[in-house]
Design a protein around this nucleic acid. Structure first.
Length: 669
RNA sequence: GCCUCCUUAGCUCAGUCGGUAGAGCGUCUCACUCGUAAUGAGAAGGUCGCCGGUUCGAUUCCGGCAGGAGGCUCCA
């Protein structure tokens, strides 16, 4: 019988003397929002004794860590419900993720939407029964014995200590220093009703999950993330501290759905994907065409100003080019299969002339490099900046094609810069600034950078070259003052890259521009320039795309603006609506003046009633609605109605034209 | 590519327990001419994604293919 001794803890920065065995619950038991504690930086269950001298902080349910714990515990409750419904279900992993959680199961029959509804109900029963989560350290043998019926858990036990290899999410099960099992203990009987091999920590009890959770979808997922493995059935869910938080989250999803470019694209008549063309091959309708043309025209203007030269290359080429570039080695699966042409056979079927393979081009760089190589180059020409809206075709796997963001035929705003090694840093800096400035002009202005570095499994070129290039990119990125996130192993085989990640109007991030160094292509194509000292030297090559693909960028802008494009990009910039037919001619005069200034303006002379015309213009998200009735006509004025519903009435026509022209020319948002 | 689900009028969606279909919006016509998000009436529009099978008969059941959605894997 040991007598309790006093120990000292640092609680929330202040020293506290408590007895040994004091737990987080003892310290913070009166605060219902505290779900776990951070002990010397590590999250621990509330019922765990805290060692002497430790620094302890409370972690509330609404904090980032607290939300993760809540969601992880919700995943356990879901798994318990699943094993009630399907006793044969074998457990995979069940981690928290952004905004929610999932759990993988090996089951005979996939889950149906009805199953999800029923599971939500049984989860509520479990939540309300107020089970305790109880942590228990076990030896490996004990774990194997207890998890004998769970083959996937046994596999994870075998992988303990190598959780990096176990697959994403596996560290929540076996990532800790010791193996632990969490029992779910019934509040009344004290019986263990369910258990799972898990690192924890967990909520003290299920009650805290309340009714602020939802199961969102089911889908298949490969065990341990490899397509070589069996597919398990995954159920996704979300959980929040309060029902209001859950509703706010669901509203966020609804908002994203309203902005979906696929939906807006057909509502606003911008583009479509005719089945007749094949998956991932979009066509742009006149209204989408205007937006695209405005985007491209402005891009061309800026590239001209920044010293780029324009080139044009074909969409198809003999295969040899991609043998030289290495694309057929590295990316053959991602290319459309070749067309074999020009073969001639003898009557007996033997080959008289072997013919050739032609490929649709998946990248523009080899062709730009041929332009470089078309004649000898002098150092005086460098940096040589070749730009093209280059259409490329990639055989994306059918399951990954998605609207305009992942297609099989797209147009890159692609440039390749050839420069000396000494010019490389200035050129990269200039390019990054150019890219960021231009993105801002299109309305994106919240960025961070990602630095993708060498994949040790997949690269060409010397280590020294990679080191120099990576260091240069890092210096350039840091000089920009933007946040820089490392992406180890994310580089393409031929060189490291910086990518610009942009946040949109509702806080989602999109990978936009990339600036990439390439050591492979200059080498493979043997390109050179003559230096001041007369020697021949190899240039450095920089790939950069700003939109990435024009199609994808248009999708991002559509979602960013929710279809309400700034006036300079809007397909129709002005709709003039007469209060009655009598004023048609008056508005035609106004519209003619706008058209003379290059403004896309029209008069709504349909037989609809006035309010209906307002509604139509509003649904079309037209930036400026000009209205004229008797009062306006007499005053030589028009009335503005803006997209937010606000009005500015009785504006003199000269003034109105001036305002609209100014908004368009300045590319105002 | 893999898993689950889906495909009915231009769009959004009903419907047929196997007997070839219906609404709203949009379109067209006529009437109405109205001051800030839906005037009324009428009409047109579909071999129910495509191909095959079962059946007296298939939009409905079965199979294949194509396209789509959500995931997984992938994304130069």
């Amino acid at each position: 019988m040991s007598v309790p001794e006093n120990i000292t803890l640092i609680v929330d920065g202040e020293e506290n003397v408590v007895t040994t065995g004091t737990t987080g619950a003892d310290l913070f038991g009166d605060r219902r929002d505290v779900v776990v504690v951070r002990v010397d930086g590590e999250l621990k269950d509330l019922d765990q004794p805290i060692p002497a001298g430790a620094e302890v902080e409370p972690v509330t349910i609404a904090s980032a860590d607290g939300l993760n714990v809540l969601r992880h515990s919700a995943a356990h409750v879901m798994a318990q419900a699943v094993q009630q419904l399907r006793p044969d279900a074998k457990l995979g992993i069940g981690p928290y993720i952004t905004d929610g959680f999932y759990f993988d199961f090996d089951v005979e029959e996939p889950f149906t939407p009805e199953d999800l509804k029923q599971l939500e109900k049984s989860m509520l029963k479990i939540v309300n029964s107020n089970q305790k989560f109880r942590r228990r350290a076990v030896s490996e043998d004990e774990a194997r014995a207890e998890m004998a019926e769970e083959p996937y858990k046994l596999e994870l036990i075998g992988l303990k200590g190598a959780s990096d290899e176990a697959g994403e999410g596996a560290d929540v099960e076996v990532g800790g220093a010791e193996l632990t099992i969490y029992d779910n203990v019934d509040a009344r009987s004290g019986d263990v009703v369910w258990k799972d091999l898990c690192r924890g920590p967990h909520l003290p009890n299920t009650k805290l999950i309340s009714n602020a959770y939802a199961l969102t979808r089911s889908a298949a997922a490969y065990w341990r993330g490899s397509e070589k493995n069996k597919q398990l059935q995954r159920i996704y869910g979300t959980a929040w501290p309060t029902k209001d938080d859950l509703k706010a989250y669901q509203e966020r999803l609804a908002e994203a759905e309203r902005r979906d470019h696929r939906k807006l694209g057909s509502e606003l008549d911008l583009f479509s994907f005719p089945d007749e063309l094949g998956s991932g091959l979009p066509v742009f309708h006149p209204k989408g065409g205007i937006i695209r043309k405005a985007m491209e025209d402005y891009s061309r203007q800026r590239h001209t100003e920044a010293g780029y030269e324009f080139v044009y290359t074909p969409h198809i080429t003999k295969g040899h080019l991609y043998e030289v570039s290495g694309h057929l080695d590295w990316y053959r699966d991602g290319m459309f299969p070749p067309m074999h042409v020009d073969a001639e056979l003898n009557e007996d079927g033997t080959v008289r002339k072997p013919g050739q393979d032609y490929y649709l081009k998946p990248m523009n760089c080899p062709m730009h490099t041929l332009i470089y190589r078309s004649r000898g180059r002098s150092y005086r020409e460098l940096p040589l900046r070749l730009f093209e809206f280059g259409s490329v075709y990639r055989y994306e796997k059918s399951g990954v094609i998605h609207g305009l963001t992942r297609v099989r035929g797209m147009t890159q705003d692609d440039a390749h810069i050839y420069c000396t090694r000494e010019q490389m840093k200035d050129e990269l800096t200039g390019t990054l600034n150019f890219v960021l400035g231009l993105l801002k002009d299109y309305g994106l202005d919240d960025f961070y950078l990602e630095l993708s570095t060498k994949d040790p499994e997949k690269f060409v070129g010397s280590d020294e070259l990679w080191e120099e290039a990576t260091r240069t990119l890092a210096e350039v990125a840091e000089a920009s003052g933007l946040e820089l996130v490392p992406d180890p192993g994310g580089a393409a085989f031929y060189g490291p890259k910086i990518s610009v990640q942009a946040k949109d109007a509702i806080g989602r991030t999109w990978q936009m521009s990339t600036i990439q160094l390439d050591f492979n292509t200059p080498e493979r194509f043997g390109i050179e320039f003559q230096a001041p000292d007369g020697t021949r030297q190899r240039p450095v090559m920089i790939h950069r795309a700003l939109f990435g693909s024009v199609e994808r960028f248009m999708a991002v802008l559509t979602e960013h603006y929710a279809g309400a494009f700034p006036a300079w990009l809007a397909p129709v910039q002005v709709v003039a609506i007469p209060v009655a037919e009598t004023f048609n001619d008056y508005l035609f005069d106004v519209v003619d003046r706008l058209k003379a200034e290059g403004i896309r303006a029209e008069v709504d002379i349909s037989s609809d009633r006035f309010p209906k015309k307002i509604r139509t213009a509003s649904k079309d998200k037209v930036p400026f609605v000009l209205i004229a009735g008797g009062e306006d006509a007499e005053a030589g004025a028009v009335s503005f109605r803006f997209r937010d519903g606000s009005q500015d009435n009785g504006v003199p026509v000269d003034e109105a034209v001036r305002r609209i022209v100014e908004a368009v020319r300045s590319r105002a948002k």
